[in-house]
Computed example of a mutant assay.
Amino acid sequence: MKKISYLLVLVVLVSCSSEIENLNIMTYNIRYDNPNDGENQWSKRKEFLSNQIAFNEVDIFGIQEGLQHQVTYLDSVFVDYNYIGIGRDDGKTKGEYSAIFYNSKKFKVIESNTFWLSDTPNEISVGWDASMERICTYGLFETIETKRPFFVFNTHFDHIGTKARLNSAKLILQKIAEFNSNNLPVLVLGDFNLTPETAPIQQLSKELNDSKIVSRLEPFGPTGTFNGFKFNEPVIARIDYIFTSKNNMSVEKYAVLSDSKDCKYPSDHLPVIIEIKIK
Rank of each mutant, 00 (worst) to 15 (best):
F179L: 15
I278E: 02
I124R: 04
P196E: 10
R45L: 11
T27Q: 07
L217T: 11
E178L: 15
I135W: 07
L173S: 04
C136K: 05
S15K: 10
N82S: 14
L23D: 09
A255L: 10
L257Q: 02
R216T: 13
T93K: 14
I239Q: 06
T244L: 00
N154V: 10
L204S: 01
I60D: 03
P35N: 03
I213W: 02
V11M: 13
P185D: 06
Y254A: 09
N193P: 08
L49K: 05
L184I: 08
G228H: 14
L7Q: 07
H269F: 10
K253R: 07
P222Q: 03
R88S: 10
E123I: 03
E96F: 09
S260L: 04
T93F: 09
N24I: 05
V235D: 00
N193L: 07
N82L: 11
Q174I: 02
F229G: 00
G228E: 13
E142F: 07
W116L: 01
P222G: 00
Y241W: 04
N232W: 07
I276R: 01
F115P: 04
N183C: 05
I213A: 08
D59H: 04
L117E: 08
W116P: 01
I30R: 07
Q202M: 03
L23A: 12
Q41I: 09
P149H: 06
G91L: 12
F231E: 03
L74G: 02
M249N: 06
P222F: 01
F243W: 02
N232L: 07
K2E: 15
E218N: 06
P234C: 03
D262M: 08
E57D: 14
K230Q: 15
L189R: 01
G38M: 00
K246T: 08
V77D: 04
R238C: 12
I236L: 13
V256N: 05
I110R: 10
G139P: 00
